[in-house]
Design a protein around this nucleic acid. Structure first.
Lengths: 230, 230
DNA sequence: CAGTGGTCTAGACCACCGA
DNA sequence: CGGTGGTCTAGACCACTGG
């Protein structure tokens, strides 16, 4: 075998562990030991600690000093808060966007929505592809209004939500519904209807979590920290 | 000298560098080399890299691979975006707070405002003391509405703003004005006046940056990345 | 080229945890 | 007690940058 297309041990370790966490091979709550990983990948502690540090930053694992490192459980309250934050911010951003957008930009958005419609018909379609397009579109208003830093912060904070969405893949996602939302948002923007927009956006961003809730309580309860109040 | 009340080299290095950056002994844009720091503190690269990594996370330094590590300049656009985000989120949070707060909680807030008034009269008063109280008070609505995660995210994102505020100390801050704002916000909450609140809060959170702008353009221009458009 | 950070090793010793 | 992570050393070699 040709070896060494690796280039970076800590990155390899990081990617592998992350993939195993997202793929639920390492389940929320499970312990992972530094030394085990060292042996498994046949590397010293340095790259392993590097990888774990990155995973910790992103919230995939948590380390209890002198005790162990664990795959984090999902936290429904945090996910809800992130959505709340995103609704608050994005509503404002789109309102500003409405005031300054141009026909050229609106054409870009329309094009993006069309791409979304097209991609779900591809034969090698994967949900991940759709979510990339989704992100691109939502990024537009932040871009145009000069709020990319905010968009970055939201994205960084959203990792828990990303894992949540991975569970979603295991059930099913109604992409047609999402696209319909996008079209409604687009309409509101065209009509400069800020009040209607606020409603639609809120519904749109809250949608997946509301829909997933029953699935979760049945199939994934152990993957969550909290029981389901509020 | 008694040595070794240190406990943690990387922490010592981190604290010292951070303090030098906030105190402007290391000025924005200045280069700092890993090896220099190793010599200066007489430690190996590991704790130094650890410290630099933390500083980088918080945005105090930036590393250009194979080139050098530099104290970051402040970015006025980012600061403005963070304030924008905070206004958007905090307005929503306070509105929710208004709906669920109780007389007990309101008394807590009133008490906090009184403390603010009292502390600026102390003889050993420092601005930092005031800002601690200020943070405590703003945290209340996030706490009560179950949005502490959002508050954490905002705080983490606000480091640039913190450095900005340090410049503010070098000019002067009108604490009486801030307290007056707080009282107005408190009134709005009592009266459940959400519309008025949105206005006052926006003004309150935008205040320092607006006031500081002229000072900055004269005294601290070199500490900022960008010129001052928008 | 010399200097910087990027990465990694192979140890070492310590502090804390639970059984 | 043994296992875990927490920290650190003193090197090493590599990859890229700038002059």
């Amino acid at each position: 075998m040709s070896k060494s297309e690796t280039k970076n041990l800590s990155y390899v370790v990081y990617e592998e562990l992350k993939s195993e966490i997202l793929g639920l091979e390492l389940v929320p709550g499970q312990a992972i030991s530094e030394n085990e990983i060292c042996k498994k990948f046949n590397v010293s502690r340095t790259p392993v600690r590097d990888a774990l540090w990155r995973l910790q930053e992103q919230g995939f694992v948590a380390t209890m000093p002198y005790h162990g490192t664990y795959v984090t459980k999902l936290n429904m309250s945090e996910i809800k808060q992130l959505i709340y934050m995103r609704i608050a911010v994005e509503t404002n951003v789109i309102c500003d966007f409405i005031d300054i957008t141009t026909p050229m930009i609106l054409e870009d958005v329309r094009y993006m929505i069309r791409k979304q419609e097209a991609i779900i018909l591809e034969k090698d379609f994967t949900p991940e592809m759709f979510y990339q397009l989704d992100l691109q579109m939502h990024a537009v208003w932040f871009e145009v209004t000069g709020m990319m830093k905010i968009w970055e912060i939201i994205q960084d904070a959203q990792v828990h939500y990303t894992r949540f969405r991975k569970l979603d893949f295991e059930t099913e996602t109604n992409f047609a519904r999402i696209i319909k939302d996008h079209k409604r948002i687009f309409e509101m923007i065209q009509n400069k209807d800020k009040v209607g927009l606020a409603e639609v956006l809120k519904e749109h961003l809250s949608y997946s979590i509301e829909r997933m809730k029953p699935h979760i309580e049945i199939n994934y309860k152990d993957y969550f920290e909290d029981s389901f109040e509020a």
